[in-house]
Design a protein around this nucleic acid. Structure first.
Length: 458
DNA sequence: GTAGGGTTAG
């Protein structure tokens, strides 16, 4: 009895230490406990597995399993659910499927949550058909879908370009007497906002305020972000102030969103103040908050400070990601250090991150602005995949240089690939051609644009 | 004991 009680106590301690991302301290705690004769149980290891998944990586999380077995404890469905959730967070469909198979081989029966997560994984990697298939199989099996299942389904639909279908499902559930949870509202607000459906998102926000649910930190961040997305910066910052007043700024999410918004509209001083406040409030920094901080330093031209943060995060065992590198490349270019940006690009190539599209887009744009057209075009042509940013920036830059016929070629290759491009870029080419006496070419381009647009629909 | 919010470029 005493032993059971102390194991429970140990688990509470380990869980709270893990929450602060101090995995090494958690391990020390575990060793000390065992020395004192307090034995860990499956819950103890499950807490560790989940924390390693979240804060370190799948490799570290998987390493816990043999340690568990050595201690005579078998992983259970919760262990595997954590692992599957971890690999889903990392968007690794193959690992998720492997873990699922392993689970079945070990006769650990997947529960509703296992299927929920599998479905979530398919949606997350952009395979909504398979995601929906999991849902169908779940309904056909003896497992009953729960509200959580529907939430994942709604989220999956929203994030895969079917936001209005998500909304329809929501209405359908309401008609069947389901009272939506706060989570459902949060998901839909975010989904509709990201799909560009401002009116529908606004309706959802208003509806939520009519319910008994109390908006939480996630709601506030989502609504703030939604305002920013539709360029309603003042409203967004108002939401942030309200969020802070209500004590919802206990983690980095709100701060990073607000700082990002302030940077976008050039209010760097305010961004600095909020960032300071976040750091002073002792909020545990993760990679995203580090990236926000690095971005702020870069915007102020403090490249040295930016690199110091990189060192700090690496010292903590974190690794720079695609965001970090894009931010640094952009910062170097903004500071006029094109050579430094090339050097950094080389370093990224060594790390296998050479095809970072955002970083390359930044670089191309800045190369044009700095007058290195040939270098910019070389980089452009070397890119494996191009997006609307790539094309819009190159077309705009070529027009600025008066290279309307080259711009027109790039524009056409963009349309043929079915990629969107800024309307202003199209317009720049057309008016440029007309103004410089290529009226025939302009006319021809116009019909080519038209045809490409029609054909892209099929 | 499990999902949902935050960071990069016109």
């Amino acid at each position: 009895m005493v032993g059971g009680l102390s194991t429970r106590l140990l688990n509470i301690c380990i869980a709270s230490v893990c929450k602060t991302q101090q995995l090494q301290r958690a391990e020390v705690l575990l060793i000390d406990a065992i020395r004192l004769g307090v034995l860990p149980n499956v819950v103890t290891y499950n807490i560790l597995v989940d924390a390693y998944c979240r804060f370190v990586g799948m490799g570290a999380a998987l390493d816990v399993i043999p340690r568990m077995r050595e201690a005579g404890i078998s992983p259970d469905v919760i262990t595997y659910n954590s692992l599957v959730a971890g690999s889903t967070r990392k968007r690794s469909l193959s690992l998720t499927l492997d873990l699922f198979d392993e689970m079945l081989e070990l006769s650990i029966h997947p529960d509703r949550w296992s299927y929920n997560t599998l479905m979530h994984c398919f949606f997350k990697v952009g395979n909504p058909d398979e995601g929906y298939n999991v849902f169908r199989n779940l309904v056909l099996s003896e497992i009953t879908p729960g509200q959580d299942t529907f939430n994942i389904l709604i989220n999956g639909l929203c994030k895969n370009g079917y936001a209005m279908h998500g909304l329809m499902l929501f209405r359908n559930l309401q008609r069947h007497g389901v009272v939506p949870e706060l989570v459902t509202y949060n998901l839909l607000i975010d989904g509709l906002c990201k799909a560009g459906q401002w009116r529908a998102a606004k309706t959802m926000i208003m509806e939520l305020l009519e319910t008994d649910e109390n908006p939480n930190a996630i709601t506030f961040t989502t609504v703030m972000k939604c305002c920013f997305k539709f360029q309603k910066y003042e409203q967004g910052l108002e939401v942030f102030l309200e969020m802070a007043n209500r004590g919802h700024t206990f983690d980095g999410f709100g701060y990073c969103t607000a700082v990002g918004g302030l940077i976008k509209i050039g209010r760097i001083e305010e961004a600095n103040r909020w960032m300071d406040r976040m750091l002073k409030n002792g909020i545990g920094l993760d990679l995203v908050s580090y990236n926000s901080l690095i971005n702020l330093h870069c915007r102020e031209g403090r490249l040295g400070a930016a690199y110091a943060v990189v060192e700090e995060l690496e010292k903590r065992g974190l690794e720079c990601d695609a965001y970090t590198h894009a931010i640094i490349i952009d910062g170097l270019c903004r500071a006029g250090d094109i050579e430094g940006a090339y050097r950094h690009l080389d370093r990224m190539k060594v790390l296998g991150l050479g095809s970072n599209r955002v970083a390359l887009n930044c670089m191309i744009d800045r190369l044009f602005k700095a007058g290195y057209m040939e270098a910019a075009m070389r980089l452009f042509e070397s890119m494996e995949t191009k997006d609307d940013f790539t094309y819009s920036s190159v077309v705009h830059s070529l027009c600025k240089l008066g290279r309307f016929r080259s711009a027109s070629k790039v524009l056409l290759s963009c349309l043929r690939s079915g990629t969107k491009i800024l309307k202003s870029a199209q317009k720049a080419v057309l008016t440029g051609l007309k103004m410089s006496g290529y009226r025939r070419d302009a006319k021809k381009l116009q019909s080519q644009i038209y045809m490409a647009r029609v054909l892209a629909r099929y």
